[in-house]
Design a protein around this nucleic acid. Sequence first.
RNA 1: GCGAGAGUGGCGGAAUUGGCAGACGCGCUAGACUUAGGAUCUAGUGGGCAACCGUAGGGGUUCAAGUCCCCUCUCUCGCACCA
Length: 818
Amino acid sequence: MKNDRYQPQKIEAKWRQKWEEAGLYRAKIDRNKPKHYALTMLPYPSGDLHIGHWYAMAPSDVRARYMRMRGYNVLFPMGFDAFGLPAENAAIKRGIHPYKWTMDNIKRMREQLKSMGTMFDWEREAITCLPEFYKWTQWLFLKFYEKGLAYKKLAPVDFCPQCNTTLAREQVWGEDRHCERCGTPVLKKELSQWFFKITDYAEELLDFSKIDWPERVVSMQKNWIGKSEGAEVAFHTEDGDEFLIFTTRPDTLWGVTFMVLAPEHPLVDKITTDQYRQAVEEYKAQAARQSEIERLSAEKEKTGVFTGAYAVNPVNGQQVPIWIADYVMMGYGTGAIMAVPAHDERDFAFAKKYDLPIVTVIQPEDSSFSGELKEPYTDVDHGVMVNSGAFDGTPATVGKAKVTAWLEEKGLGRAAVNYRLRDWLISRQRYWGAPIPIVYCAKCGTVPVPYEDLPVILPEDAEFLPTGESPLKYNEGFLHTTCPLCGGPADRETDTMDTFICSSWYQYAYLSPYYQGEQPFDPEEGAYWLPVDQYTGGVEHACMHLIYTRFFTKAMRDMGLVDFDEPMLSLRNQGIILGEDSEKMSKSRGNVIAPDDLVREYGADAVRAYLMFGWRWELGGPWNSRGIEGVYRFLHRVWELLLSPVEQSLSQAQNGEEVDALRRKLHQTIKKATDDLDNFSFNTYLAALMELSNLMGKVKEKLWSSEVWQEATRTFCLLLAPACPHLAEELWSRLGYEFSVHNQAWPVFDERLVVEETVEIVVQINGKIRDRLVIPADADEAFVKEKALSSQTIQNGLQGETPRKVIYVPGRLVNIVK
RNA sequence: GCGAGAGUGGCGGAAUUGGCAGACGCGCUAGACUUAGGAUCUAGUGGGCAACCGUAGGGGUUCAAGUCCCCUCUCUCGCACCA
């Protein structure tokens, strides 16, 4: 009987249909099994699944399938991050309603996702733009408001002129401060906006002890939160106006020779003397203009002007001039600093430029230097305090703490902590988002929409115009409402929420999509499945989604909705697949690889396998068309190997050595595959399968009718099942096993069978390989050494000399030192 | 400048925890089968004619270093006048 060839197109759709009919991947609470919540970041429904989605999701699916075979009850859901700008831009450009555009795209992408052969439980799908979903997004907003975690304030904010909306600080990237979505440099605008008080959780967000996340993400988040410890010190002007400064170096207080305020500092106008007023006004105007126009000024040459006012240094009563300069930011600390040019790079440069005095107050330990400083001395671990009154002689290492304590005692200042993290600006002046459930009443002021009135529905009949203001503002039907408190006429808030809010809690929505109960998700489902055990996705979300969702979970914990501190216990990031030209894939470059085409040509299993085999998953790299053909060939070979019969099986006599060799390789492969999948090492997992198939190919003729061959083919199907679910199922069925391979347990290896019976020992003289010995694996040291020394090559190498030392590493080598 | 990561054949990448560098695949070479081959199969494939030399470069520790320590260089990513 001649076997037919491997034709993925003939088997893949068939099995997917069978799986669906059998409800194979429905995830239901089962208290007899340990649970595993595997999650991969949900896609934005842009219209087409691209290779990046495959690269992110296919290996995640492999891992979820592996955990399932390991006996876990696995939840692996999928949904769509469906609010956002492209939908609205399509509406502006082509007159398609964002809802229709989005839902059409979802329909298409859902089918594409299914073609991957993933084990997503589609009955748990959640789409963030549906009222049944965003009702709970709004509900959470109200809870945040109730808890004082949502507030509105007038503030200078970042505005993207291309996207026509404000952005959170996290969504402004790079030195030129461009919009994370479209790359346009942002503008500063003074606007009244809603914020979430993420800074309340700054300290807790710095604690990563409960999660296993990549070091890279941890360090990016730490960096982003930017904790610095020091002291807040109160200074006064000569006229008695108080202003606070923050410093990390209270030990250098005696070295203050001038003060600097940010140009926007509220005290500037008041303290500026008439003589300097014009210069100050000009400088302020220029600073404001600069922040709006050219930010790319390469050299950060320090500039500033004197205000004419003086401050009194509280520690020694000295009068020091107060300047304004744009190197001091209003947004960080108190917007005012004490300048210690002797011990700070920036202050030093400023002092040099404007010829301000420099006073050394930290003396480097062993140098007896005096005179003019060439550069500031910023070392905090060495040196002693000088010119600092009673503190003279205090080592710099303890100076900070001692001075801070002294300041507190004297009532001049206090220990203080500053964070770089800003509160999260969530207002967006766009239509296609969840409306902020707030009403403004002339009588009652800002009034939250009552919970029972949720959801606040987006009107269908909005005008989509790129005005920079929310289209909802011009929608009379939406705008005008009645005040929930007094029943009088009132206006709705017309801004919508940042879509990152939807994705901050979506992992909870999957538990019971569009839940109708009293809270966003079914508590029974939550008690069983939560938290997420394994999360996967791109590292580009390190300081956005991944920080927001941690914040949300902590806030939800404090509301009593969940009982844990972290949303995702373990996180892994995949890399990025580049075009074949090593450039980022883009339509304009014409280097885009379309997964649909690949599936048509090679089948989904080959695409999955190549995406795993081709790169280290966390790194990614350029696409290689030859590479996928190699993997495709491998799958063909596997098909022939397991299915095509041997014409005449050679020796029935079952050569013992080959049986042992195959069995050993089989168990070694199970061990390797298990380890590799545990560690997300998908490329070596596939390499191990290839090695096994290579050996099987060599012994097939001899062992085809043997028991060990059956064991090998069966196990091969099981090991292949997570990677190539369709092919494994087809092979499984053709080998005569019962549906489904995906309901089988992951094979276990026998440690005794993994061990080789004989080992090759390398014999070195002075670390250079001179001979090799094949010995029984359990040979003892004396025997191996004896054998090594008596070998002819070694005798020749030694030339009669007695070795000084003989080192034996069991199972590996003997090193003879002359 | 600060923080994180990386540097191994022509290419993607392997190398338990210091113990045979280059698994597996691509590509390449030769052969077989074929009307044909960009299909398939078989064999070979780090460099060098060799002794030997080889994991970015230079030092060190060790019987033994891709792996540990010190210095230098290059690349990628994040942050960046953060007081």
